[in-house]
Write a protein that binds this DNA or RNA. Structure first.
Length: 943
RNA sequence: GCCAAAGUGGCGGAAUCGGCAGACGCGCUGGACUCAAAAUCCAGUGUCCUUAACAGACGUGUGGGUUCGAUUCCCACCUUUGGUACCA
């Protein structure tokens, strides 16, 4: 047989697997199941990136391993294909997004198949498939049909929502609007990034410094009718259910911080004159705190109601509805100017860079409901309209932000929490010259005086609740999910807006009947934005846009769903991809869920995983899935960087500058002292050397050189294309290399010589078994049907043991190292027992499946090894009869001792005391203590 | 600023429980084979000092600590990477 040639072997086995449907998954698991899932890719025009095969190989190894261990394995692949790039491409080239998407999917599929992944391709799906998004729309309708019962903490059908009698009395339309307000999918006004220059709405990521990323046009924030999903209702469950998941603590914390639950109180501050206050207060006593905010108050949210006595001013967000109402005529001009400026800043810009506080006084005052004193109402953009009530009480003595603002605008600071004795700067704090945010004893706080922070908190909430001016409240940093996009290439909403005789919306909406799903996208001639903040679907023909049902005319919803929608439930569809009567068959769902192992990039740690968990919980509440959580174990693979590069810096007159004297300026790297712009120069390996911890120029060691791996990017020109790696080294080498680079979770640099190294290993495996000099298929003569020697057995069985253990703990790099040791050992053996060779082939098969199949065939087997039982090991054969034990004196290694492996502590100590090399160390010394760990070491403590 | 992860040879990395630091691979050096080269095979390869050799000292970002013994545990600090950004 000839030399190892992946270009021949790999297509051969890919064709074999495909035509034999080797990896077809049964409808229902037979015996134990395991569901192993990749985060499916967005099929971009650039094709597969070397980052993709990293996670995909890891899951493929797991899948192939568990098949050989006899489990039913579900291992599917699909495409997250709705989204912006296809639409941008359409605008640029006038190609319908569906066409470019299908081209890209074909490329991705070809590339994935070239890598030999064992997906059940019959289950492949794309979120853009009509039969798929039909069910995405169906789930939206389920969200639309669900309200959240706070008492029961679960979603229930909208029909079960109790409608108050006074609403019922107002008639059918009132009832409909009441229900619409409680649905998990509801319409609301939300601020969007409207870019008049581009004539479109932009995502937050597309806005940089208040300008559009493309074209640098100003972007304005304006409210627009949007579909929202009430994810906040599930906030508590999304936090508490993290407990049972096998995810890293880091990701769990990230999610729980993102949800950001806080507890505190809502408090009403009346906007009345001091003389009106007593009557306002009297009216409130004994009253229930209302959901709707009365006209004469500012409602605030605080986590520290115990500091209420220290509230010396109030701040409302520039977008707060009360701005117009409270602003006095004298302040009107300044207020308008400030608020207008704020609309041109995104949340991010407001907080970016220096944190100098800005604000403007409204001229108005509110009454502090505990001190009864009037306090000024300010407008400042450090208060966000989207959190809490969009208004705060400012307690500068005990909140850093308020303190900064108070100092900037010379507002009074009153200390109401006495810091503990050990706190530094106590006097300053008590004088209001420093801010203190910790817990302490209440001070200058009426009935709270002397109470600890927690007691004061409980007491004040109780008092104010009794007085009808406050109530306990919970808030989340997490906002309701803005679910609509003013884009073409997404799922249309299955929603109709009723029109009156003149064609105006009546405000009444209805869901498209389930039997009429899917609502397909209309054909459009032109995808370009039209200059109004309105979605492109509004340009569809009337035949698509308008619908008449039971004599009423409706206009279709023209927003589309965001890219997240399709990825929220694809893991369910893989279980039953062809089902035409349900999202997934309930029995199959019960049998296959949850996903046992989910591997993907860390960039989805928050949003995708949070959104999918939310949908899953709604499906659970409504009885469509059997478990509360979809993804049992989650692993994030690390990023693969480009090759390590050495970079030096030079001035314009070509003088080297050591990296010690460089820093990042606005337009590039500059000299620390002169601020002169420097050019970066790539330096060859041979021109640098390491001195101490740094690399320096060989020609001038005073010049330090930067050494690092950068993210792969087109601009830098360090992108590695998997296709070219496959054609040069083979898919098995690529797979093996990506697993050998280091731990799966780690960020690691690419290295072409490293790929060469694993290819070299595969060549050695080949030559271990195949006679490369023979013309025909022939094994080497060393392979014999003979029992392994004890030493060979030790290698065989300890390799099986280690590789098995490492595969289960996802430590693929060390598993490969063990197989290399195996090959190094047997290469030297002139007699190679067939059984040992077969074990190696099976161990290697999840990593390098093509080569393994080829060798398996060469060893005389006539069908695929995909379901061949995983080799067993006998632990007793891994142990040798003798072992080497280190001997230490005072913890330092001084000698080594060969003893029978089963020596006990006594024998070990005895042998150690008589070891001739230790004699010189022990001579004239006294052994104070002997530490003997059988099978490990001996240590004598001497004096 | 805050949160998280990580710092080990020339490089990527390894080291189940606190017990021989540097497995495995790359690179490098030498040797065998060859007319020669490639390929392959074999051997060596942390630093320093010394030696004919054995041996020895130092060594896992830095500084402390706990321990018979620390890459591993504790404290403080430095650096890098990723995330986050006034959430009251």
């Amino acid at each position: 047989m000839p030399r190892y040639n992946p270009a021949v072997i790999e297509p051969k086995w890919q064709a074999y697997w495909e035509s034999n449907k080797t990896f077809r998954t049964p409808e229902m698991p037979a015996g134990e199941k395991v569901y192993i899932l990749d985060m499916f890719p967005y099929p971009s025009g650039a094709g597969l990136h070397v980052g993709h095969p990293e996670g995909y190989t890891a899951t493929d190894i797991q899948s192939r391993y568990w098949r050989m261990r006899g489990k039913s394995v579900l291992h599917p692949m699909g495409y997250d294909a709705f989204g912006l790039p296809a639409e941008e491409y359409a605008i640029l080239h006038n190609v319908p997004p569906r066409v470019s998407t299908e081209t890209n999917i074909a490329t991705f599929t070809r590339q994935l198949k070239d890598l030999g992944f064992s997906y059940d391709w019959d289950r492949c799906l794309a979120t853009t498939d009509k039969e798929y998004f039909r069910w995405t729309q169906w789930i939206f309708l389920l969200l639309f049909d669900t309200w959240f019962d706070l008492e029961q903490q679960r979603g229930r059908p909208i029909a079960e929502l109790a409608v108050p009698a006074d609403v019922v009395a107002q008639g059918q339309d009132a009832v409909a609007l009441f229900r619409d307000k409680h649905r998990l999918a509801y319409q609301g006004e939300a601020l969007v990034n409207w870019c008049p220059g581009l004539g479109t709405v932009l995502a937050n990521e597309e806005v940089i410094d208040g300008k559009s990323e493309r074209g640098n046009h100003p972007v304005q924030r304006m409210p627009l009718r949007q579909w929202m999903l009430r994810i906040t209702a599930y906030g508590d469950r999304l936090i508490s259910d993290l407990d049972g998941l096998d995810w890293t603590l880091g990701i769990k914390k990230l999610q729980s911080d993102w949800i950001g639950r806080s507890t505190g109180a809502e408090v009403d501050f009346p906007i009345v004159s001091p003389s009106e206050f007593p009557s306002w207060q009297n009216n409130r006593i004994g009253q229930l705190f209302q959901d709707s905010i009365p006209d004469d108050v500012l409602r605030i949210y605080t986590t520290r109601p115990d500091t209420l006595y220290g509230a010396t001013y109030m701040v409302i967000a520039p977008e707060h509805p009360a701005v117009k109402k409270v602003t006095t005529t004298d302040s009107a001009a300044a207020v308008k100017q400030y608020c207008d400026a704020a609309t041109f800043k995104s949340d991010r810009d407001r907080t970016d860079g220096d944190k100098r506080k800005t604000g403007v006084f409204t001229g108005a005052y509110a009454i502090n409901p505990v001190t009864f004193k009037p306090i000024p109402i300010w407008i400042a953009d450090y208060v966000l309209i989207g959190y809490g009530t969009g208004a705060i009480m400012a307690v500068p003595a005990h909140d850093e932000r308020d303190f900064e603002f108070a100092k900037a605008f010379n507002l009074s600071v009153e200390c109401v929490v006495e810091p503990p004795q050990h706190e530094s700067d106590r006097d300053k704090i008590l004088n209001g010259d420093r801010c203190f945010t910790g817990a302490g004893l209440a001070l200058n706080s009426g009935s709270l005086n002397g109470l600890g922070t927690q007691e004061a908190l409980d007491r004040i909430i109780a008092e104010l609740t009794a007085n009808g001016v406050a109530r306990q409240a919970i808030n989340y940093k997490l906002r309701d999910w803005l679910f609509s996009r003013q884009r073409f290439w997404g799922e249309p909403f299955p929603i109709l807006h009723e029109l009156d005789a003149s064609g105006k919306p009546t405000g009444i909406i209805r869901a498209v009947d389930v039997k009429d799903l899917p609502v397909d996208l209309p054909q459009l001639e032109d995808y370009k934005p039209h200059g109004r903040p309105e979605p492109p679907l509004a340009k569809a023909d009337d035949s698509w846009l308008y619908v008449t049902i039971e004599g009423k005319r409706y206009r279709r919803e023209t927003n589309t769903m965001p890219q997240w929608a399709g990825s929220c439930w694809y893991y369910l569809r893989f279980i039953d991809p062809k089902n035409s009567s349900a999202i997934v068959d309930r029995e199959k769902e019960k049998a296959w869920m949850p996903v046992d192992l989910y591997i993907g990039g860390a960039e989805h740690a928050v949003l995708h995983l949070l959104y999918a968990r939310f949908w899953h919980k709604v499906l659970f509440d409504r009885g469509y899935v059997s478990q509360t959580e979809p993804f049992h174990k989650l692993v994030n693979q690390g990023m693969i960087l480009g090759e390590v590069e050495f970079t030096g810096f030079k001035t314009l007159d070509n003088q080297w500058v050591s990296t010690v004297h460089t820093e990042k300026g606005e337009t590039g790297f500059v000299h620390t002292k002169t601020k002169e712009l420097l050019s970066t120069v790539s330096v060859a390996d041979s021109e640098v050397t390491k001195v101490g911890d740094n690399f320096v120029l060989v020609s001038d060691p005073s010049i330090r050189i930067d050494s690092r791996a950068h993210k792969m990017s087109k601009a830098r020109g360090n992108v590695v294309n998997p296709d070219s790696v496959v054609s040069e080294y083979g898919a098995d080498s690529l797979r093996l290399y990506e697993m050998f680079m280091g731990p799966l979770e780690a960020t690691k640099p690419w290295s072409t010589t490293g790929v060469n190294g694993v290819r070299n290993f595969l060549d050695r495996v080949w030559r271990l078994m195949v006679d490369t000099h023979a013309e025909e298929n022939r094994l080497v003569d060393c392979i014999q049907d003979i029992a392994p020697t004890a030493e060979q057995n030790r290698v065989i069985h300890s390799t099986i043991m280690a590789v098995t253990r490492d595969i289960e703990s996802l430590s693929f790099n060390t598993a490969i190292a063990r197989m290399m040791e195996f090959v190094n050992f047997f290469t030297k053996e002139t007699v190679r027992p067939r059984q040992g060779m077969e074990s190696l082939v099976l161990l290697l098969s999840p990593y390098a499946p093509h080569m393994a199949e080829e060798l398996w065939q060469a060893l005389g087997n006539d069908h695929s090894l995909a379901y061949q039982p995983w080799p067993n090991f006998d632990e007793s054969l891994t142990r040798s009869s003798e072992m080497e034990v280190p001997l230490q004196i005072n913890g330092k290694l001084r000698a080594k001792l060969v003893v029978p492996a089963d020596s006990n502590a006594e024998q070990l100590e005895h042998a150690a005391r008589n070891h001739e090399k230790l004699a010189e160390w022990l001579d004239g010394k006294q052994i104070v203590k002997a530490i003997v760990v059988p099978g490990r070491m001996v240590n004598f403590v001497i004096k």
